[in-house]
Amino acid sequence: MVAFYTALLSSMIVSNSVLAGYKGLCSYLGISKKSSSAFGMGVALTFVCFFSGLICWGLGFLLRELEIYDFMFTIVSILVISSLVQFTELVIKKFFPSLYKTLGIYLPLITTNCVVLGLALQVGAYTDASSFPEVLATVLGVPLGYFIVIMLFSCIQERLETSNTKYNFKGAAIGLVATAIMAIAVYGLGGVI
């Protein structure tokens, strides 16, 4: 149980997918102009990461059995992710139309989000079946960490809108510099967990 919480917190904060893993930057910079869109992206990403992570973990074992893991895993996991995303989009569109209005436009963007594929590749590398608590913690922790960072960054971006930045730095450039300082701050947490 302790291992679960340790892995959860460490994948959420210390090995944060944006600040320490450099993944998911396209939507991190593009979506976080408004907090509401950041919230929608985070929720949708958590959902997709959870299911695709678990499925890819299982498929990793299957492919290793068939001995085609080395060259098929990328193709198989990206197919799983894109079909999961399209399936989710269809289901939400049909059964929860109001939810589709808020979340629906972000779902196709998740296909090209590096966080999901990075998680699938990381989780597929586990060869031991008893690593399930750790896998579960990673699969929950990575998107939640991304969610926290994107929410904090959208608040910072909203505040930077009103600042006196020169025109060429406004927008993504100043956001990246702020992300660098956030990475400095999170660097100090290494070793706490």
Binding site: I156, R159, L160, S163, N164, T165, K166, F169, I174, V177, A178, I181, A185
Partner: peptide
Amino acid sequence: IFGGFGSNIF
């Protein structure tokens, strides 16, 4: 880079 006094976050 943030714009001088009053515009910084950190």
